[in-house]
Every structure is written in structure tokens, then in C-alpha cells.
């Protein structure tokens, strides 16, 4: 479904991502792990169009998408959340989720100003769907809240609800469990598994190894921007390079 080939991104002298290649099969849960600064978020930013690659290519459903703008990629069915939350604090929580459904609605300014027939009805249906999504990801208590008044953990899940509102084909989650307690982490884990079962391709960056190991079909390990290993959770657990470079060295960090 998504094929990344020899992808590199340089910031000045920093090689944030260097010559990384991998393929994400349709309908699976694919995890990207690696120590802090390994280039995981940069990889997400490259794939979702926020950064343009220095070199290399990204193919999605057989088409080259490298360098395309994020809004065009959203049209193709990509969606994501952010490690450093990108919440519209000037909107209510549910409006944030509805922003995710932007492409499914008639968003012309003219139609909006003159209340085009059907517009209000479609918007109401969208609002109900957004509320259902908030319930589903576990922030149903905040349906009437302003986004600015929500705690961190709920905002993390609000981002997932917004990302799902576009009905994507592939979903990228950047550290969905960071800062969450055990119960919350567990519910994220259940949610990811559920989404994958419904046919969605989910790509996860996460430091919580228990979550990664139990939920992933395949795992990519990055270290200093380079691909260190790739394979099934069992492969990764036994890979000596991974143990040396990541799991071994950084155990205190987990």
C-alpha cells in the first residue's frame, strides 16, 4: 500500500532520515520504533507531505506522492496525529473532530454564507458522527467542551478522533500513548487493533514496547536516521543489532 524507497531528509548538517526503505502492506499495523531523535517523526512528516524529501521516493497505492502537499495527500486517504499536539484551541472539541471531516463536506464559502440546501443537514449528521467518534476513542466526556479546556490525555485521543473523521485508508499515529496512564494506554492498544481489524492500515510510532509488540504486524527500527532492522515483532525482539543499539542501551528510558 505504501512503499518508501531510499528516503532521506537533511536539515543543514543533520541527517534526520537517511536512505530508509520499507513497504507497508495494506490492512496491517506497522510500527516505527527507535530512540529519541532517531527520525521517526521526520519520517511521518515526509510521508504526510509536511516536509519535502531531500532524496528518495514515496509511493502510495502505486503512485509517486513524494513532495505532494498535505491537503492533497489527505484527499488520497492519508490521515495522522501529532506527537506535539496540533489542536485548534480556538474551536470546541467536537469542532476539532469535524475539521477532520472537512473533505466530506461542502466547504465552499458561498455555500456556507447562503446556507446552501442540505448544508446544515450534512453538518448536523457530521456533528453526530464526530460525537460518536469521540465516544469511540474515549473522550466522550468532552463532547460539549472547548478544546482549550481539555487535559492532555483527552487531547491525544481527540486527535485520533479527528484523524478518523476523514475516513482514511491509512492512519499515522505519532506516539499515541505518550503521557497516558496504563488504562488509557491499554484502550489505545485495543483501539488500534480494532481499527486494523476493520481494514484500516495503521502506522504507529511508539516508545511503549508492550504496546508495540502486542499490536504490530511488522516493525521498522530506526537509529540515527537509518534503518536498523525490519520484521515481525518476534524478529525484532531477537535481532542482536536492535538489542544492542536500542533496547539494551535505552532501557532506562522506557
Amino acid at each position: 500500500m505504501l512503499t518508501v524507497a531510499n528516503l532521506s531528509k537533511q536539515f543543514g548538517g543533520v541527517h534526520a532520515v537517511q536512505d530508509v526503505s520499507f513497504t507497508i502492506p495494506q490492512g496491517c499495523v506497522y510500527s516505527v520504533i527507535g530512540p529519541n531523535g532517531a527520525g521517526k517523526t521526520t519520517l511521518f512528516n515526509l510521508i504526510s507531505g509536511l516536509y519535502t524529501p531531500t532524496s528518495g521516493s514515496i509511493r502510495f497505492e502505486g503512485q509517486d506522492i513524494s513532495g505532494q502537499a498535505p491537503d492533497r495527500l489527505a484527499r488520497r486517504g492519508m490521515s495522522r496525529t501529532f506527537q506535539n499536539l496540533q489542536i485548534c484551541k480556538n474551536l470546541s472539541a467536537i469542532d476539532n473532530v469535524m475539521v477532520g471531516a472537512h473533505l466530506t463536506l461542502n466547504a465552499s464559502m458561498f455555500a456556507g454564507m447562503f446556507r446552501w440546501p442540505g448544508l446544515a443537514r450534512a453538518d448536523r449528521a457530521c456533528r453526530e458522527r464526530a460525537a460518536a467518534l469521540m465516544e469511540r476513542v474515549g473522550c466522550g466526556d468532552f463532547i460539549t467542551a472547548d478544546a482549550a479546556a481539555m487535559p492532555y490525555g483527552a487531547l491525544k485521543r481527540l486527535e485520533i478522533a479527528r484523524a478518523l473523521a476523514s475516513d482514511p485508508k491509512i492512519l499515522f499515529l505519532d506516539e499515541p500513548a505518550a503521557g497516558l496512564n496504563h488504562t488509557e494506554t491499554h484502550s489505545v492498544q485495543t483501539l488500534v487493533a480494532e481499527l486494523a481489524r476493520s481494514g484500516l492500515t495503521v502506522v504507529v510510532v511508539e516508545h511503549d514496547m508492550k504496546l508495540v509488540m502486542s499490536v504490530s504486524d511488522r516493525i521498522l527500527v530506526l537509529n540515527y536516521g537509518r534503518r536498523l532492522a525490519e520484521g515481525t515483532p518476534a524478529d525484532i525482539r531477537e535481532n542482536p543489532d536492535v538489542i544492542a543499539a536500542y533496547l539494551g542501551a535505552d532501557t532506562e528510558e522506557e
Partner: peptide
């Protein structure tokens, strides 16, 4: 960022 990722030009 959030807007563009949601498909807003």
C-alpha cells in the same frame, strides 16, 4: 498544520 493534514488548502 492540523488544517492542511485534514485536507484544507
Amino acid at each position: 498544520t492540523a488544517a492542511s493534514v485534514a485536507g484544507i488548502d
